[in-house]
Design a binder for these strands. Structure first.
Length: 499
RNA sequence: GCCCCCAUCGUCUAGUGGCCUAGGACGCCGCCCUUUCAAGGCGGUAACGCCGGUUCGAAUCCGGUUGGGGGUACCA
């Protein structure tokens, strides 16, 4: 279509969070810019709304992009530019539009506009079109939409879209105070920055005929358009920051890998074909084409994202996995006392956790038993594992066997002991290990038990089994568990004890 | 209301007139493996919204219909 190198742009307004929909748009734009040596991805911060414009938010945008792999140090990256710094150009253009008769001043108030609509289907009836009003207080500048003929938008994703001019009102391009509106500023900036391909969300499709009219009025060739389908929630509504989980930062905090997020986002409306899904960015980048983007809205399925994330986590080299877990092990956020953390212990157990976490944040619950003074208190796990008939004898037997000073503290030996203890009580290993697991980790589910015990160490294992045994016996005797670590728990535990 | 967009398994999609008794992935279900939970292996469930055309032939083309969605600001 164009021989000139592609220049696309990503133009978010700084709102304090980075929307996943914006992330997908950015990625699509980025892929196109990267496909050509001279292709450029222009970042423009639309900060005209002074109310929501803080420097740190811009920083957040740059960081979020970098997280996705869109680095401002890449030669294909240009900017950031700030819309606010083009205010002069915007006003100049508005004035030019007026001087050339393409726009006129209007002193109608909002109420008058409402009253004046002769056609109930159109917002403004063009009352001031030919009144020849001069610029002045209270007068907004409206674009004179040409009479007759439709404006045809050629959209790379949707094809030809026609808008009859009778359905486009004379829209305001500059407020009474002279400040430009989005529709104008956006066009002026895009033209100024040489943007020749606009890829953005479908919510902008209805702005497009107005913008195209503006491009033409200004004597420029409009860019090629592509309107991406919106990303929706389970109710099939556009993802909104008010009610939906849309902030990229949230996913980052939970432990989603950028590789997985990028992979998933790319697939929301586009497919590399050939039944391929898990595919690194480097392979998708050259394959991507806007014309292949699906036109139907897409549901953001976190379940599938998690599955992808798990895949990527499992594919990590163990060293990498350990490093990536760091942020959640940080003393600032970890639930255990800083001095309890043991790097060697973590590294020893990490391989077992790698295939068990779907998001990195889950690493904490998997290893906390190693670093907490006491295992976590989980009433459900306790009542499920500490069955009155078997828990006490099992714990006692386990204690006796594991306390044997001659026992080699290794998974195979530990397993053999617990298995034997269980057999004596008529319990299969599955049942036999449960009380021990809960005594030691606090939970019924977790990493393989014998390796866990190995890393935890003999001392602490025995201490925890003792404590659990004491508590079980106290509960069986109908006495409320005493001691500092006893956590009162009514309902489920009481009923379990009477079973 | 009006303008515009959209429509294949629950979800994301492949499919561009015959290769489709519609393929993959996530989810879900079952089995295997198994110390819990994962992971892994095997198998299964499940879709072309509806009605008309066009055509020898339609998931694919056209019209309508229904149902979703987006936009309707002196917001971006």
């Amino acid at each position: 279509m164009t021989e000139n190198p592609i220049r696309v742009r990503f133009a978010p307004s700084p709102t304090g969070m980075f929307h996943v929909g914006g992330a997908r748009s950015a990625l699509y734009n980025w892929a196109l810019a990267r496909q050509q040596d001279e292709g450029r991805f222009v970042l423009r911060i639309e900060d005209t709304d002074a109310a929501r414009n803080k420097p740190e938010w811009t920083e957040g945008i740059v960081q979020a992009l970098a997280w996705l792999g869109i680095s401002d140090s890449d030669p294909h990256f240009e900017g950031p530019y700030f819309q606010s710094s083009y205010a002069g150009k915007h006003r100049e253009t508005a004035e030019r539009l007026y001087k050339e008769g393409r726009a006129y001043y209007c002193d109608c108030t909002r109420e008058q506009v409402q009253e004046r609509r002769d056609n109930p289907n159109l917002g403004y009836d063009g009352f001031c079109r030919d009144r020849g009003l001069e610029p002045g207080p209270g007068r907004a500048l409206r674009f004179r939409v040409p009479e007759g003929g439709p404006t045809v938008v050629e959209d790379a994703i949707r094809g030809r879209v026609e808008f009859e001019h009778t359905s486009i009102e004379d829209f305001v391009v500059a407020r009474a105070d002279g400040s430009p509106l989005f529709v104008l500023a956006n066009v002026v900036d895009d033209a100024e920055m040489g943007i020749n391909q606009v890829i953005r969300g479908e919510e902008h499709l209805s702005n497009t005929p107005k913008q195209q009219l503006l491009w033409e009025a200004l004597g420029h060739t409009p860019p090629a358009w592509a309107h991406l389908p919106v990303i929706v929630n389970e109710k099939r509504q556009k993802l909104s920051k008010r009610r939906d989980k849309v902030a990229l930062e949230t996913y980052q905090d939970e432990g989603f890998l950028p590789e997985a997020m990028v992979n998933y986002l790319m697939l929301l409306g586009w497919s590399p074909g050939e039944d391929r899904e898990i595919m690194p960015w480097s392979q998708m980048e050259p394959l991507f084409a806007v014309s292949d983007v699906n036109s139907a809205s897409a549901f953001f399925d976190e379940k599938k994202l998690r599955a992808f994330n798990g895949e990527y986590i499992r594919a990590l080299a163990i060293e990498d996995f350990v490093e990536r877990c760091r942020p959640w092990l940080d003393p600032e956020v970890a639930p255990w006392p800083e001095e309890n953390y043991d790097e060697d212990a973590f590294r020893a157990i990490a391989p077992l956790a790698q295939s068990r976490v779907a998001v990195l944040g889950e690493i904490v619950a998997n290893v906390d038993f190693l670093f907490l003074d006491q295992p976590v208190e989980d009433a459900k796990s306790w009542s499920k594992a500490m069955k009155p008939e078997t828990a006490a004898p099992m714990l006692a037997a386990a204690r006796d066997r594991l306390a044997d000073p001659g026992l080699s503290w290794e998974p195979e030996a530990l397993r053999a002991e617990l298995e034997a203890a269980g057999t004596e009580l008529g319990l299969k290993l599955g049942k036999a290990q449960a009380p021990v697991r809960v005594a030691v980790t606090g939970r019924t589910v977790g990493l393989p038990l014998f390796e866990s015990l190995q890393v935890l160490g003999r001392e602490r294992t025995l201490l925890r089994i003792d404590a659990a045994l004491e508590r079980v016996r106290a509960e069986e005797a109908g006495v409320a568990p005493a001691g500092a670590d006893a956590v009162p728990d009514s309902g489920p535990e009481g009923s379990a004890a009477t079973e």
